[in-house]
Design a protein around this nucleic acid. Structure first.
Lengths: 246, 246
DNA sequence: CCGCCGGATTGATATATGTTAAGTTTCCGC
DNA sequence: GCGGAAACTTAACATATATCAATCCGGCGG
């Protein structure tokens, strides 16, 4: 779990807290592509940390598989289920992944005894909410090409936080179908849009690999501003104000 | 603050906890229409409970005022700011409103001493996240008319939880411009869509008042399923499992 | 090596929505 | 009650995207 909040608030977590978090893991498991780890409406007794691979948040409606969020390594994917108990969406792997499970009983002990760590966990779930909000803006305001560029820009930054991006792109298991579902458009149209971005030399997309020739140009095209990701030195500066640290 | 989580988890909150929450309020204030209560990027030292009126979550981008969420009485609007410290969006009143402020220092004490109540507060922020996700689905999948119907259906349920809806509609200060910004469309188009819904007898929209002739029909049209709102008896059934209650 | 299959690509046509512009109604201060 | 601003309404036209249909391509099992 050493990737948890890396690039974000890792520095305000003490070594003791890090070790404590590690000790919560009950089981590590390799899961194949397309596995539903936690289903909408089912009572959850554990939450999942993503160690390797990609995970999508999916809401099914009248046959459509809408992707409402994407998770990368280091994300405490369904920590939401600790407070919500039953999720409103499915948690589905994209590509083979490695996950770690943390029982809710142990999280309850943390909440009872570790206010500072509790607040960090709470923070990490609200980070997801901030990302949701940016997706809403993206869907309200951008057109398909810009939406795709926005998702790619976001993924680059989030993967960069955990050391999985390089200056010219990153590896990614998402198919064009997934990207279409995440952009609120069709596979046919996302394909046309990819072609157009390729011609503009903003983006190259091959099986499993995204290439970004000029990241600044891509981000400008996507109206992307990274501050909502709460990376170190951006929106989040002074966590310790009126601290709950013991 | 007696409206907080009403219709949702109010029943798992003890009288002691309710009184404790009430005691956190430092100041109650009447604020006029269009006031920005908390601005993106500004360090927050208190959070706001909405007592009366409406509040919008707004993200400005290149001149557009995108509404990424709406809050109704009983909502602990910017509780997110307690864990995030700086918000990624603005909190803006729609119509004159009555709000109560809770200092973060007092919330920090709650986190340190009241694990059960902490978890309820955490829950309420994740409820916002669940609503964000449903908005994402709405924007990905529905067309403008269905989006508008969806927002109206959602508002009816949320207002109903706190006793502010009636069987045939509710009062609402949102202008057509607001609805357009929340549906990711233009004021001109939202107007066309309102006309069409009126003709279909699904919706009547006058200044300050929404009339719903046939709620079941409206919800069917909007593909609306209320379970993501975590009303009593829906997704959220057994909060006390592996409880943190002392 | 062949054939198959899932994913990617391209084309033609239909539809929803954006844009611009002009008019109408409602509200509110004077 | 009058004048003006703000909100709402309608129209004509431009464009992005959906839909339907066909083809292409690459990996993989036989």
């Amino acid at each position: 779990m050493r990737l948890f909040l890396k690039g974000r608030l890792r520095h305000v977590m003490s070594e003791r807290e890090s070790a404590l978090l590690d000790s919560l893991v009950e089981r590590v498991e390799r899961v194949p592509d397309g596995t539903c780890i936690l289903e909408r409406g089912v009572v959850a007794r554990q939450s999942t940390m993503l160690i390797d691979g990609f995970i999508s948040r999916v809401i099914n409606d009248s046959g459509n598989r809408n992707i409402v969020g994407l998770q990368v390594p280091g994300d405490f994917v369904d920590l939401h289920a600790f407070a919500l108990k039953r999720l409103d969406h499915d948690i589905v792997t994209v590509g083979p992944s490695l996950v770690a499970y943390v029982p809710h009983a142990k999280l309850a002990e943390i909440v009872a005894q570790e206010p500072h760590l509790t607040r960090l966990l709470w923070f990490s779930t609200l980070l997801d909410a901030a990302i949701h909000r940016e997706w809403i803006v993206k869907l309200e305001q951008l057109r398909a090409g810009e939406r795709l560029a926005h998702i790619v820009a976001e993924l680059w930054h989030r993967l960069n936080f955990v050391g999985l991006a390089d200056p010219h792109g990153f590896n990614m298991p998402l198919l064009q179908t997934h990207l279409a579902n995440a952009c609120g458009t069709t596979a046919v149209h996302i394909n046309r849009v990819i072609k157009s971005l390729r011609q503009k030399e903003l983006l190259e997309l091959n099986r499993g690999r995204v290439t970004i020739p000029d990241r600044a140009a891509l981000e400008a095209y996507a109206h992307f501003r990274p501050d909502y990701l709460y990376g170190e030195g951006s929106l989040f500066l002074d966590f310790e104000t009126d601290s709950t640290n013991p």
